[in-house]
Design a protein around this nucleic acid. Structure first.
Length: 492
RNA sequence: CGGGGUGUAGCGUAGCCCGGUUAUCGCGCCACGUUUGGGACGUGGAGGCCGCAGGUUCGAAUCCUGCCACCCCGACCA
């Protein structure tokens, strides 16, 4: 494997794939389309999980766990949902292997061990969860029911890419039941806002909040809220979705409740999820040709200390200071790795920590011992300065905060400068081809127009942003009247 | 599922067209020594069912047949 990463300009997609592998985040496995998430990558995912989990609990949700398998009869109960996912389902048909009489030492599926009913490996859990909710909900007193689960799901995708689209992925899925439509709608919007806050404050990724058009909506939903992010190559990435499911699942699984007034009615539902795909968003938003760039809030190690020494005595002295710095910073809640491996030289360590996106690097060597200083380097700006040991702790704290903010600002500037308003289809095609990013344009609201535009340009309507104001205009494709602009883009 | 391609050491590869010494080179790995403020160097070493099965031949990584796997481009998708 070569030392240098392919540059983004040279081949963006190759850059991404190499970065994921070289930064030790994940690798392809022996199973087609399924990845192995390596410890460093998983550590980042755990940080996301921890923060999201906290936010879910703060908004009143509880975690639970439901089965991996969904009996086919349950899966098909909500027709639209079933139809939407049918062509990418893995299905378990047998429960036993046996020695193959024709091939000694090999196994075969025991033809006698066919399941009465096939089991679908969940591509999403609405079916199994709603069949369970039926037993949990009888009265308005049981509502709202606010459940989240952390799980793996399987979607048999044709073409896969590490983190962005894998046949199996990790995610959380929230599933809630409410007494009224208004309350369910509010929940779906609330969770979309939670995702947006998480993306922006924690991952430093600016997102557009919006709703999907009918054709992009989740199978089985009446409304899909989403957050859309923009990657450095000008393509959009759906980073999270929150669905208002109406009474579709309640009806499919016959989940009714008795109201205060004694009437019976179907409950109203939402579901919402984000996945390991966020790892892809994280990588493609901040990283550069030197490797990963992590916002401090997500970095497994926010600071790495690299010792520089010639003799054992120097190493000992440097280590003494390094350990003091480490414990001072730890006391302030800053995570620090002291990279005291004597098997690698400083240059190799610098390169590795850069590749892995550690926000701050502190180097301590003989010169620093003499002068009472350290060298501190920022990963995001690649700037270095020598500072006095005295106020190192507060300097580090300030820098980490500054990096977090500056990464967000940089991404926001890029995103904002890549939302282009266009008024006619020639400009639309031109911008898409030469600039990329989001195109803000009027649309006549029909699926036909949406499809045509997709067919011609490969751009889809990413969302109808929630914060746009009404504005009279003409559809960029048909010229028919339109009341608001929507965002188009090529998407992952 | 359509079109194209590739399988040689942990990774990346040469050799294949035109069959013939001990299968090439780089990275990585191991040992020892010298090194250590931006990816060190030297010396020595380990590591191969040349994707699998069959065929042709005195002889196959190389030719033929079948199979398998993977990659790229489409259609599908978070």
């Amino acid at each position: 494997m070569s030392k240098k990463l392919t540059s983004r300009a040279e081949d963006y997609s190759k850059w991404y794939n190499e970065l994921v592998v070289k930064a030790d985040l994940a690798e392809n496995s022996a199973v087609r389309g399924c990845m192995v998430i390596k410890p460093y990558g998983y550590a980042i995912w755990e940080k996301m999980q921890a923060e999201l989990d906290k936010m879910f609990k703060e908004t009143g949700h509880q975690n639970a766990y439901f089965p991996l398998f969904v009996p086919k009869s349950l899966f098909e109960a909500e027709e639209k949902n079933a139809e939407g996912f049918a062509k990418e389902c893995a299905v378990v048909t047998h429960y036993r292997l046996q020695n193959d009489p024709d091939n000694p030492g090999k196994l075969r599926v025991d033809p006698e061990a066919k399941l009465e009913e096939e089991l679908v490996v969940r591509p999403t859990s609405e079916a199994i969860i709603w069949s369970t909710f039926k037993g949990w909900i009888q009265s308005y007193r049981d509502l709202p029911l606010l459940i989240n689960q952390w799980a793996n799901v399987v979607r048999w995708e044709m073409r896969t890419r590490l983190f962005l689209r894998t046949a199996e992925f990790l995610w959380q899925e929230g599933h809630t039941a409410h007494a009224t439509k208004g309350e369910a709608l509010k929940e779906a919007e609330l969770m979309n806002n939670v995702y947006a806050t998480f993306a922006e404050n924690f991952m430093a990724i600016p997102v557009v909040k919006g709703v999907k058009t009918e054709s992009e909506r989740f199978a089985g939903a009446d409304e899909t809220y989403c957050i859309e992010a923009l990657m450095q190559d000008g393509k959009a990435l759906q980073a999270g979705t929150s669905h208002f499911l109406g009474q579709n699942f309640a009806k499919a699984f016959d989940v009714k409740f008795t109201s205060k007034e004694g009437t019976k009615d179907y409950v109203w539902a939402t579901s919402w999820g984000v996945s390991t795909r966020l790892m892809g968003a994280l990588i493609m938003t901040h990283s550069d040709d030197e490797g990963l760039v992590l916002p401090p809030s997500l970095a497994p190690n926010q600071v790495v200390i690299v010792p520089i020494y010639k003799t054992d005595e120097q190493f000992e002295e440097v280590s003494k200071i390094a350990n003091l710095i480490k414990s001072d910073l730890n006391a302030k809640g800053v995570s620090v790795k002291y990279d005291n491996r004597d098997t690698h030289r400083p240059g190799a360590k610098f390169a590795q920590h850069e590749l892995q996106g550690v926000p701050l690097r502190i180097a301590i060597g003989p010169k620093d011992l003499e002068n009472g200083t350290v060298e501190i380097a920022r990963r995001d700006t690649k700037t270095k300065e020598v500072i006095a040991l005295d106020n190192l702790t507060s300097t580090v704290e300030n820098l980490l905060e500054e990096i977090q903010n500056s990464l967000y600002k940089k991404a926001l500037d890029y995103r904002d400068s890549h939302i282009t308003e266009v008024e006619n289809f020639d400009d639309f095609k031109n911008i898409l081809k030469n600039k990329g990013g989001f195109i803000s344009a009027h649309w006549d609201g029909t699926i036909e127009t949406e499809d045509k535009i997709k067919e011609i340009t490969k751009a889809t309507i990413r969302c109808i942003p929630v914060d746009t104001k009404e504005e009279e205009g003409k559809c960029v494709f048909t010229g028919n009247p339109s009341k608001r602009r929507v965002l188009f883009a090529k998407a992952y």
